[in-house]
Design a protein around this nucleic acid. Structure first.
Lengths: 216, 216
DNA sequence: CGCGACGTTGAGGTCCATCAATAAGCGTGG
DNA sequence: CCACGCTTATTGATGGACCTCAACGTCGCG
């Protein structure tokens, strides 16, 4: 599919503001922005990992598959976040646009500056992955969903109402649950008055404290 | 406990050989080797993360706890491996010696060289953590144990007979299982002729192919 | 030899996956 | 605007994988 067209700059995005927060120039050689339709592939295992990406708008899922199709999403990436760096010159994962998404890609130039810029990002990703290991290894379904909601809440600026860009299936594959279990936990949390669903994909946290306590 | 005594150099370790493989001088300022008795703490959350560590001999577990004591081990570190770098100046995890262990610690010096050396290590750690997410999120008990055995096999030089430095409880907390389930899967793998237990902590892989297939 | 830590095995219960049916959103075209 | 079909989400019923609790066995060490 046509996933590499130039970006439509008429959309009102907060990209310029994000640029100011990020040490972007040190990243490498900027390349044209790319637009990715919903569900389109950004990279896949085995492809060249010679650049990495900044989400401009939309959402990206990074995942691995087992031979029989079981999927584990290791991370969602929201606007302003960087993804796509790898341990060697080939990708080990899939990356896809969750909804309509735009990214900037940066060609890697092997300079010391680049390392110094990338290291903190890699380390933060490492800590995030390790925290996610605790969720998948030792927390039950309600705790996992609560952790996910809190994470999305914090990453979208801490407003009690926020969007879930991804489907229940995506959430399930991120949390190591079935989509039915995710749906049931949502229903339970609504019943307890902890959250509301303004729409299917719009969450409003009502009892923040209760949600936090669930994650210990 | 007395976890910071100097190392006993009379033990025959393969450290010198490992040194040759690793870009150690670029790491930072070497500090005296430390000996850690079995079970002793190496660092804990909140403590200063101003140095990182190379395992000389023994084994280290890195983990997080939930408030009620549930534990998730995010990684075991074997001789020659580096651990302890963090996203900010404080540790977010516990690190403990599994058995009698010796480490070299390196004080972090904020140079570009250091970044260039550390980045590949951080990226490899990131890929490892993301692969572990797939195991915890989407594989069942036999698959998890098989993945663990294969990993230990490969990291100990690919000899069909190797040691497990850690207890069943540690393995369980690494794989997100109960210790009983780990034990039962071991028994099952023995019954299938896939592995043998030379001793409680010495594994011999008999049907490597069958073990690999289990992980897909 | 005896004690304590570690490991194995068994019985029973629970949480969650699976299968299945219904309902709700959403775009398309009449 | 509504009808239609498709995708996504919810809800229910059932079974199974794994956890928990408990007993027993085994190893290592004083």
């Amino acid at each position: 599919m046509h996933s590499q067209g130039n970006v439509d700059n008429t959309t009102g995005s907060n990209w310029d503001a994000l640029l100011g927060q990020m040490p972007l120039p040190a990243f490498g050689v900027p390349m044209p922005a790319s637009f990715h339709p919903a569900g389109s592939e950004i990279f896949s295992p085995g492809s060249d990992a010679n650049c990495f990406y900044v989400v401009k708008f939309g959402c990206v899922r990074v995942y691995r598959l087992l031979a029989d199709g079981r999927r584990q999403i290791s991370a969602f990436h929201l606007p302003g976040e960087v993804f796509g760096f790898e341990a060697d010159s080939r990708h080990h994962f899939f990356a896809e646009a969750v909804g309509a998404t735009s990214t900037l890609s940066m060609r890697v130039s092997a300079t010391a500056d680049l390392s110094a810029t990338l290291l903190p990002l890699a380390l933060r990703g490492l800590v995030r992955a390790q925290e996610h290991l605790l969720v998948l290894g030792r927390q039950n379904a309600p705790e996992r969903v609560a952790a996910f909601l809190l994470d999305m809440f914090e990453r979208q600026g801490g407003l009690e109402r926020f969007e879930l860009p991804m489907s229940r299936t995506d959430i399930a594959d991120y949390l190591g649950l079935s989509l039915e279990t995710v749906s049931r936990v949502f229903t339970r949390l609504r019943g307890q008055g902890i959250m509301r669903l303004v729409s299917l994909r719009t969450v409003e946290i009502v009892k923040m404290q209760a949600l936090s306590v669930m994650c210990e």
